[in-house]
Design a protein around this nucleic acid. Structure first.
Lengths: 130, 130
DNA sequence: ATTAGAATTGGAATTATTCTAATCGCACTA
DNA sequence: TAGTGCGATTAGAATAATTCCAATTCTAAT
């Protein structure tokens, strides 16, 4: 094992970290697995997931996930935003008026033709906050 | 079958729609399945998924999903936003400066203690847009 | 060196979602 | 109105994404 600071960087975790740091863009867990195998052929999928969670918790890599583990369905049809509790996972609606220039700015910076824009606030819900 | 307008509302789809419309909040597919079974005991999980997709495409129900089918990992650690292409699913970074009052407003409306805030722009990416 | 306890690994299991062969039901014909 | 062709719909089976947990490995104290 290779301790840097107080970090437990096993060779599996080093391999996964190297894959992320050498990558451009946004790899899926599957892609990380495929690349990690080239560095460490025996590594398992589960270890890649364990390592990704560890590295994310240590703040060494970023994750795009929005805190949800599955799709949710809703009778509400109008555009609205959401707040997700990092502690209990609850998802609540939030109506933030989006200034039109905000959407315009997003279009300009991304070069996308925008269909919709949504804000996700992550934090601690009133229940979990005592 | 029961056609309303040009909608093919089979009894399965009617059951799923009724479940969503009678619900408060944000049901998972699994919860929709459990509730639908009370109305139509023989309905299968796959049919619930098919119906949810149909009803979403027809604009009869809302979906919270952010267009991603799995978690993605990233070397970038600083706060940033994302644009997701509705056509090809590509995910690109977007740096929108979030005014501090925007976060404050989110906190006030949701009653959450905010940890972070992220904007998701959904639209058509330059490649898919010819 | 030995061992107890903690941390890590990875095969197996679980959960979420999609695929597709079989079935259903409407429109048309005789 | 009975038969038939065909697109739409259903749902069992398969796949994909993620987590669980028993076995193993590592660390530190003796």
């Amino acid at each position: 094992m290779n301790n840097v600071g107080n970090l437990a960087l096993t060779k599996q975790r080093q391999a996964v970290l190297q894959v992320i740091q050498d990558s451009e863009g946004h790899l899926t867990a599957n892609e990380v697995f495929e690349h990690s195998r080239r560095i460490l052929p025996g590594i398992s999928f589960a270890t890649v997931y364990n390592s990704l969670r560890y590295l994310r918790n240590e703040g060494l890599i970023g994750e795009v996930r929005f805190g949800m583990d599955c799709t949710r369905y809703d009778r509400k049809l109008t555009r609205h935003d959401h707040a997700i509790c990092s502690s209990c996972g609850s998802l609540v609606d939030l109506d933030l008026p989006i200034p039109d220039e905000f959407l315009k700015k997003g279009e300009r910076l991304s070069k996308f033709k925008a269909e919709s824009i949504e804000v996700v606030l992550r934090g601690i819900c009133p229940d979990c906050n005592k």
